[in-house]
């Protein structure tokens, strides 16, 4: 059986991770790449693109749509589109309905209201403060010596919660240190930190206006405490696409197929 043909490739050169997704004629995912963003995005994307092309046997030119903060640096891109449109497109394709999409990325977070046709109707972004982004969790993880993928589980492992009054990532650090010095349990601090992050996100959700269902994309969607606390704060169940972190690249790839009867 011959390999399915790659119709388009999406590249999401984010501030923290770099993602690539290749899709076929029907918009199905044929291959992907994900790794931490390196300083020379242009070279990194070129290399990942080469790997993906050879893995999937792509010889000829294929539309390549770039998104993410480094989208202008992707020299092979045939088009560049913002993450708002790409995440909206990817998630709509995967979950099949409109609603409110929260994308928590490495250095920014967005709330996007999707119409019933999957197109973004309104959005709000937080990028002036790291406390509402994945960076907040990374920082905490490094400071407390807890691996990033354990943060959520540890935060949910207790009912006790230490309120973190500071909403700034940098100042939160001094607060954590003083709490630890007072002998407060690590899990209670973690729960409080997740609460602080979620508080910022939920404020944005209410600002844009919560139209159910509530959907989550971006790398932070993997964190179970973020999901649980968002559900608790909004009273809405959070829906996840299959690969939340790849949704930007997936949406970009789907946009690349436009005019080729897919998506």
């Amino acid at each position: 059986m011959s390999k399915p043909e790659v119709v388009a490739i999406g590249t999401d050169a984010g501030s923290t991770t770099c993602k690539l997704v290749a899709v076929g004629q029907g918009g199905e995912v044929l291959g992907s790449r994900l790794e931490a963003t390196q300083p020379h995005i242009e070279l990194q994307v070129g290399e990942l693109l080469g790997q993906l092309r050879s893995e999937l046997g792509v010889d000829g030119p294929v539309p390549c749509v770039a998104t993410g903060y480094g989208r202008k640096l992707v020299k092979d891109a045939t088009r560049s589109v913002t993450e708002i449109t790409c995440h909206a497109r990817g998630v709509f394709r995967d979950l099949g309905h409109g609603g409110t999409l929260v994308d928590i990325g490495g250095q920014d977070s967005k709330v996007i209201r999707l119409g019933n046709n999957g197109k973004p109707v309104d959005f709000m972004m937080n990028d002036k403060c790291a406390a509402g982004t994945g960076r907040f969790l990374e920082y905490t993880s490094a400071r407390l010596g807890v691996p990033i993928d354990e943060l959520g589980r540890r935060a949910l492992s207790t009912d006790r919660e230490e309120p973190i009054t500071s909403t700034c990532t940098v100042f939160a650090e001094s607060e954590i240190i003083s709490l630890l010095a007072r002998g407060v349990a690590l899990e209670a601090i973690l729960r409080g930190l997740h609460r602080a992050l979620v508080g910022r996100i939920v404020a944005m959700v209410h600002n844009v206006g919560l139209t159910p269902p509530l959907m989550l994309s971006g790398g932070v969607a993997h964190n179970e405490a973020v999901r649980a606390l968002i559900e608790e704060a909004t009273g809405e169940r959070v829906l996840l696409p299959r690969e939340p972190q790849l949704m930007g690249a997936y949406g970009a790839a789907l946009l690349g197929t436009e005019g080729k009867s897919a998506a």
């Binding site: 913002t82 449109t85 197109k119 972004m125």
Partner: peptide, 15 residues
């Protein structure tokens, strides 16, 4: 902030 503003403006135009 140039980058953030451009990002928002582009998303606005896409809408």
């Amino acid at each position: 902030a140039e980058e953030q503003s451009t990002q928002r403006l582009e998303a606005f135009i896409e809408m």
